[in-house]
């Protein structure tokens, strides 16, 4: 469950980062379309919410909400590092 929480956090932050013009450009060389941007923001936030639910599942509501904050930090840091050193790794396949 903790691994799942971490994965959701990682996914959430990666998606949120890609919803930003600068990072989308670094990864895909283009700015995201408005709709795509909106979708990614929603998806990213949803993934972070799922990460909270998984944390609560793993640790219970009291420790889980504390642990989630740690999971958030631990998920965001790798996204930052990948965007810095290998932005292309974050590329997701374009929609047809």
């Amino acid at each position: 469950m903790i691994v799942l929480a971490l994965l959701f956090s990682l996914l959430g932050f990666a998606t949120l980062a890609l919803a930003m013009d600068r990072h989308h450009q670094a990864v895909h060389r283009t700015r995201p379309a408005k709709r795509r941007k909106r979708l990614m923001q929603l998806g990213g936030s949803a993934a972070l919410t799922l990460s909270l639910i998984a944390s609560i599942q793993a640790w219970g509501p009291a420790y889980g909400s504390i642990g989630w904050l740690g999971v958030l930090s631990a998920g965001a840091a790798p996204v930052l590092l990948v965007l810095t050193y290998a932005p292309h790794r974050l590329a997701i396949r374009r929609k047809p």
């Binding site: 903790i2 640790w59 420790y63 504390i66 642990g67 904050l69 740690g70 999971v71 930090s73 631990a74």
Partner: peptide, 21 residues
């Protein structure tokens, strides 16, 4: 919350890493 004496092991790692940060 400050001293994290309650903390299970994985949670403790998150406390530690945040402290390192």
């Amino acid at each position: 919350l400050h001293a994290a004496r309650f903390s299970p092991m994985t949670l403790r790692w998150f406390f530690f890493l945040s402290g390192v940060a």
